Amino acid sequence: MLAAVLYGQEDLRLENVPAPEPGPGEIVIQVKAATTCGTDLKVWRRGGHARMLKPPTLFGHEAAGIISALGSGVTQWQVGDRVVPNNSAPCGQCFFCDRQAYSLCKDLIFNNGTFAQYLKIPAPIVNQNLLPIPDNLSYGMASMTEPLACVLHGIARSNAQPGDRIVLLGDGAIGLMFVAALAAGDHVGKPSEIIVFGGSPQRLQVAEQLGATQTYLHRAVENIPGLVKSLTDGWGADIVIEATGKPQAWELAIACGRPGSTVNLFGGCPGGTTISVNTEQLHYNELTLKGVFHNTPEFVRSALDFIAQGTAPLELLLSDQQPLQNLGQVFNDMRDRQVIKVAMRPD
């Protein structure tokens, strides 16, 4: 079968590899759509990921498709079922799983290889994080379940309250999903303001369509924390969410929060990087700095429901559909910020 293999930094190759066969408790799906993701872009540019994969490896982690083969012992699914698998599953037995902190599971299993004609789904994911696609939902839309699940997890951990003034740094796909879910009031109630800073006028227009109340091109603002304070009666934002994965943006996010605010440092930075924090500000302003990673089975289900109900026009995030053979060009377009997400079609 044709599949994408990541060998290193910006070294992604399409190769013919053996088609997978399911083992006990596993299934194989024929991939109908595999969406590109900001995490994939970062991994491609950096040449690896500390938790999810090490090259050389099959690549991609968002997919939806049709079950093409069942392993022994799988009785709850049938060949031909339309399904969306999450890219991970917790062990359910460790210290963190006992406390329902599933994203911190020390035996969290990850599954990569969605940019391919077929994808094997490990038994733990089949048991916990494989969901049927509603009849009204396309494969491309269903494929966005995994990143939206991460976003919903991030919102739930942000200590937000109805009526909050929220600042979001970043206009990538994840940042725009945050806008859509926040504007819908998912889990926390609707904020009074969603102020977005981004680098693309076109993406900021999408943010407004998804519910942002104010948008700003970050390079056109000389003093972003100062502007945030001027927009919030001199205080700063109640909640700040960083969705770029750059250390300097983490520091900027902290500077945008009011006393007592929560700063969600959501974007994963390159390994080994550090930030500087003003200890006086952190202590006397009682700031909450929170890192939030990945998703949990609860939010995987919530994400698919959110997409299926049409709560927000998330189709605005799908810039294009392309055959798998064009994957290299698509990653170049993502690097150059010409597209938001692209649904790759292996068939």
Rank of each mutant, 00 (worst) to 15 (best):
V228H: 06
Q9H: 04
S200D: 10
G268R: 06
L169E: 01
G267I: 08
R301D: 06
C269I: 06
L168D: 02
R51T: 06
I166R: 07
P297K: 13
K32L: 15
D233F: 14
F96V: 02
P85R: 04
Q321W: 10
Q93G: 00
F331M: 12
F299K: 00
S230G: 01
K106G: 15
I224N: 00
A312E: 03
A343F: 06
P313N: 08
N326Q: 15
G271L: 11
M144N: 03
D320M: 01
V221D: 08
L169M: 12
I109Y: 12
K120M: 07
L217M: 07
D333F: 09
A33P: 03
Q338F: 00
R45N: 07
H187V: 13
M141S: 01
D320I: 01
H283L: 13
L41K: 08
R13L: 13
E242R: 03
V206H: 05
A149N: 01
M177Y: 05
G226N: 02
G73Q: 12
T39Y: 13
C91D: 15
R165Y: 08
T57M: 07
A69H: 05
Q325K: 06
T274H: 10
V196P: 07
C269N: 12
L152I: 14
I195G: 04
H283G: 08
K229R: 15
C269F: 10
G268F: 11
G175Q: 03
A312R: 13
L316K: 03
F293T: 04
I340G: 09
G310R: 10
E193T: 00
L204E: 09
M52L: 15
V292F: 03
Q202V: 08
V126E: 10
F331Q: 10
P147I: 08
G80P: 02
I125D: 01
I254M: 05
T311Q: 15
R203W: 10
N127L: 08
R219M: 05
A207I: 00
P18K: 04
P191R: 05
M1G: 13
I125E: 07
F110L: 07
T274Y: 07
Y216D: 00
T279Y: 15
T36S: 14
S276V: 04
P122K: 09
L53H: 09
D186P: 01
R301H: 14
V330R: 06
H153A: 09
N295K: 15
M344I: 14
E251Q: 12
N278M: 05
E280H: 11
Y102V: 09
A255L: 11
V43L: 04
G170L: 02
L287Q: 06
V126M: 14
C105Q: 13
Q248H: 05
A64V: 03
V221A: 12
F293Y: 15
A212I: 05
L6M: 15
S143L: 03
S68C: 04
V83L: 10
I166E: 02
K341I: 05
V179A: 09
R157C: 09
A253K: 03
F110E: 06
V126C: 14
A243M: 11
E146P: 00
K246R: 13
M52T: 11
H61M: 14
L210H: 02
N285T: 15
N159L: 15
F299Q: 00
K190V: 02
A212L: 11
N112D: 12
R258I: 06
R165N: 07
G73N: 04
L53S: 04
V196M: 11
L287A: 02
A3T: 11
Q338N: 13
D81A: 11
L252F: 09
G189M: 03
S302C: 10
G48K: 13
